[in-house]
Design a protein around this nucleic acid. Structure first.
Length: 813
RNA sequence: GGGCGAGUGGCGGAAUGGCAUACGCUGCAGACUUAAAAUCUGCUGACCGCAAGGUCAUGAGGGUUCAAGUCCCUCCUCGCCCACCA
């Protein structure tokens, strides 16, 4: 062994681990299982990018540690390979997305091996592989069979640039309040289109309640909760000329404060109401104008607009009073019923509106003193509410609901912000939806999913080749143009058309973690016994951007499958951590145009994967975002080189037994690194290794036995170097990564001599050294005898003497 | 506007209520070298002091405690998520 040559070492072991299947996870074992999962990547470009090494390094260190701790560890990897970049590239270059995807996957696989990730490559999956999407299609058909997939016309987001519809979750709001696409940040607009939806709203309650059973960071839980947005209240019918005008309210208790009704300009109800109004023209004009307004203009909340439907009134359900009707664009069509009962006394928006349009304001809840002269939206004692005056508003709320239900003019109601999931896309590179439209307008599954023979014969429905991937502006999928594929027949031989929309790129990732359990199964999406053994995922690492998308979608699929008796638990992931980002050296997001992109494979080439892994871990906690600093990798490279160089010394001039100091350092290392990896604090684990090396270098020697224990501790962090040195010194054939984690010898964690600081009035003034064997009283006496302590006490009287055994003493004067 | 989280040296960060600033980077001084790089040694929160030592510092202010970066209250700033959701 000469000088530290990471290239040679890493090449050798990357290949051997792969050939020897070192990281294979065994189905069923006496060992306890751990399923460690990091979100699989979308393969694009030449190699793994900087974000991936942040994402995967910490989970890999953790998985390696658990393996050595005696767990049967599943740490799989696959490719989420359907999606727009490959397709857009195909449009430009004419190269089939399958080809570019395959190339990207190959280079990703190579770079993951170079990074030393301990992946079970036998379980690799690819969402674009027909053997995989066969089961994505089968699962979709399960939703369809159970009535949870529906072809429905509704207002949805259309992105002209991407030429496809998008789900609610895929639409973001930019700084100026404009709606944009999550991918590409292009403008999106509302369109009324007929699309496939998965009824995720049916699972809103289960998705909410499940959050209480799993360990997700509070930020994720609250983001999912607010995305689902459940609110309790009531639907109330107001009668208008004999027809019903229904509203949803969370505050039935304010019903006597209703002084107007406001209707969304988009509401279909307006058509009828307009006929009764005397100012049709004025109202129509307002409706037209509001259509032209952007969301941003409408959002200026203090500037509410609206116009009265003159000559039409609603009847108050309790008082029978006439209530004026308004069309107002602050009322949203896609929440509640698109109609609001206006209670200006106790709702901020209604208050702004009423002020602007001079509508009367009737307070119905007594205003507490602190709120005098201000808008009060809280609860309290009822006033101006007929026979209910004096009641507590919350009790009254219940009474109102009961009365509404009794009189048949309303009912208890729960509303959600969550919308059903738009599940069809007008793009090529996705899973074909395995349905046909018959000539008489029926929609049928292409196979009987409960008949294995039929499933085998009809699925997968392969994505056909098309000469042209270009999407069209009219909302037709590129598949539409392939008439040969589109035109088919139903079971009776009648002509039928295939569904030409494809699934969104989220489809494959909704269940990939299930497939890892049994990736080659051709009879079902996964074997029940294997699912029972491996699922749920114990630790799930991923990106914050998936909080209300992938993470919500896959929980939904899993809960549905549980209800169908197809998976063994109610939640797919028991624990979740979101990872941060790696920024360019200038502290801004890496981008090719800014020229601040760091290529992981360049760093692996120059400094080695071990140094890079340690550097990534050493940056700080997994959840945070850091700028890349080249000095970081230099310092961890030095650490690797120091370890490598010291190894020569251990081999040639070894000590029979390590010194007391070294043994203490070693056991402290084992103890600390164990707990740090367990709590995923890889940054301090790396510093423990540095501290150990510093102290070993000071001692100058260490026994081979101690050194081998050290190499085991090093193994999860720097798997290549640890493996190389292990084989060099141990004479063993078995990989270090399959060795048991070293045990702590507790006696080396405590030394004979204890040094404790002594505080006087809360300030450290002295240190006292004593033998562990001394009793507390003896120690106290020693402290009071100490010269420095005596000096500080002087002639003062002791008020208090606190001694925390082995920790600290505090003398209060 | 609402929800969640965070504020510690020049920088990344460490600290079960018990010696704040571990570990690393940067910087400075020195050794080696013709020189540089690399490497090694020492110093590196601020202030006072020749030193011993002392004073002040964890966003600001208050509180609880023998003891607070850590717990409680008020405020400020930043980040993320949601946002006219009735």
């Amino acid at each position: 062994m000469g000088s530290y040559d990471h290239r040679e070492i890493e090449k050798k072991w990357a290949d051997r681990w792969f050939e020897e299947k070192t990281y294979q996870a065994k189905d069923f074992s006496d060992k306890p299982k751990k399923y460690i999962l990091a979100e699989f990547p979308y393969p694009s470009g030449n190699a793994l990018h900087a974000g991936h090494m942040m994402r995967y390094t910490v989970p890999d260190v953790y998985a390696r540690y658990l393996r050595m701790k005696g767990y049967n560890v599943l740490f799989p990897m696959g490719w989420d390979a359907f999606g727009l970049p490959a397709e857009n590239f195909a449009v430009k270059s004419g190269i089939h997305p399958a080809i570019t995807t395959k190339k990207a996957i190959e280079s990703y696989r190579v770079s993951m091996r170079k990074m030393g990730y301990g992946i079970d490559w036998e379980r690799e999956i690819d969402t674009t592989d027909p053997n995989y999407y066969k089961w994505t299609q089968w699962l979709f058909l399960k939703f369809f069979q159970q009535g949870l997939a529906e072809y429905r016309e509704m207002p949805i987001w259309w992105c002209e640039q991407l030429k496809t519809v998008l789900s609610d979750e895929e639409v973001l709001t930019d700084k100026d309040g404009n709606k944009i696409s999550e991918r590409g940040e292009y403008p999106v607009e509302r369109k009324l289109l007929k699309q496939w939806v998965l009824k995720i709203t049916k699972y809103a309650d289960k998705l909410l309640e499940g959050l209480d059973q799993i360990e997700f960071p509070e930020a994720i839980k609250s983001a999912q909760r607010s995305w689902i947005g459940r609110s309790y209240g009531a639907n109330v019918s107001f009668s208008v000329n004999g027809t019903k005008l229904e509203v949803f309210t969370t505050r039935p208790d304010t019903i006597f404060g209703v002084t107007y009704m406001a209707i969304s300009p988009e509401s279909p109800i307006l058509e009828t109401l307009l006929r009764s109004a005397v100012n049709t023209e004025e109202v129509t004009e307002y409706i037209e104008e509001s259509k032209r307004k952007s969301d941003l203009e409408k959002l200026k909340s203090k500037d509410k607009t609206g116009v009265q439907l003159e000559g039409v009134f609603a009847k108050h359900p309790f008082t029978g009073e006439n209530i004026p009707l308004f069309v107002a664009d602050y009322v949203l069509m896609d929440y509640g019923t698109g109609v609001v009962m206006g209670v200006p006394a106790h709702d901020e928006r209604d208050f702004d509106f009423a002020k602007k349009l001079g509508i009367k304001i009737i307070p119905v809840i007594e205003t507490p003193k602190d709120f005098e002269g201000k808008l009060y939206t809280g609860s309290g004692k009822m006033i101006n509410s007929a026979e209910y005056n004096g009641l507590d508003s919350q009790d009254f709320s219940e009474k109102v609901i009961k009365r509404l239900e009794k009189e048949g003019i309303g009912k208890r109601e729960t509303q959600y912000k969550l919308r059903d999931w738009i599940f069809s896309r007008q793009r090529y590179w996705g899973e074909p939806i395995p349905l046909i439209h018959t000539h008489d307008g029926e929609i049928l599954s292409i196979c009987d999913i409960d008949d294995p023979k039929d499933v085998d014969a009809k699925l997968p429905l392969r994505l056909p080749d098309v000469p042209d991937y270009t999407p069209s502006s009219d909302g037709a999928s590129p598949l539409e143009r392939n008439k040969e594929w589109v035109n088919t027949t139903d079971n009776e031989g009648n002509p039928a058309r295939r569904e030409t929309n494809t699934m969104p790129n989220w489809a494959g990732s909704c269940w990939y973690f299930i497939r890892f359990v049994d990736p080659k199964n051709s009879e079902s999406f996964a074997d029940v016994e294997k699912m029972k053994y491996w699922l749920p995922v114990d630790k799930y690492f991923g990106g914050a951007e998936h909080t209300t998308m992938h993470l919500l979608y896959s929980r939904f699929w899993y809960k549905f499958l549980f209800d169908q008796g197809l998976v063994p638990n109610q939640e797919p992931y028991m624990w979740r951590m979101n990872g941060g980002l790696l920024l360019g050296p200038d502290g801004t997001k890496m981008s090719k145009s800014k020229g601040n992109v760091v290529e992981p494979m360049d760093i692996v080439e120059n400094y080695g994967a071990d140094a890079l892994r340690a550097c990534i871990c050493f940056l700080g906690p997994y959840t945070d975002t850091y700028p890349w600093n080249i000095n970081g990798i230099k310092s961890t490279w030095r650490l690797m080189k120091n370890i490598h160089d010291f190894h020569q010394k251990v081999k040639s001039a070894n000590a029979e037994i390590s010194s007391e100091n070294v043994l203490r350092a070693l056991n402290k290392l084992i103890f600390n690194v164990s707990s740090m990896i367990e709590s995923l604090k890889m940054n301090t684990a790396v510093s423990e290794v540095m501290i150990f090396m510093n102290s070993v270098k000071d001692s100058g020697e260490i026994s081979q036995d101690s050194w081998m224990k050290f190499l085991k501790v090093l193994a999860p962090l720097a798997p290549f170097l640890a493996e190389e040195l292990w084989h060099n010194i141990s004479g063993q054939e078995t990989s270090i990564h399959l060795q048991p984690w070293p045990e702590v010898e507790a006696r080396y964690l405590e030394s004979e001599q204890i040094i404790i600081p002594v505080q006087i009035n809360g300030k450290v003034r002295a240190e006292v050294t004593f033998n562990r064997a001394l009793s507390d009283d003896e120690v106290k006496a020693m402290i009071l005898e100490d010269q420095t302590v005596k000096k500080h006490i002087g002639t003062s009287e002791l008020k208090k003497f606190i001694y925390v055994p082995g920790k600290i003493a505090n003398i209060v004067l």
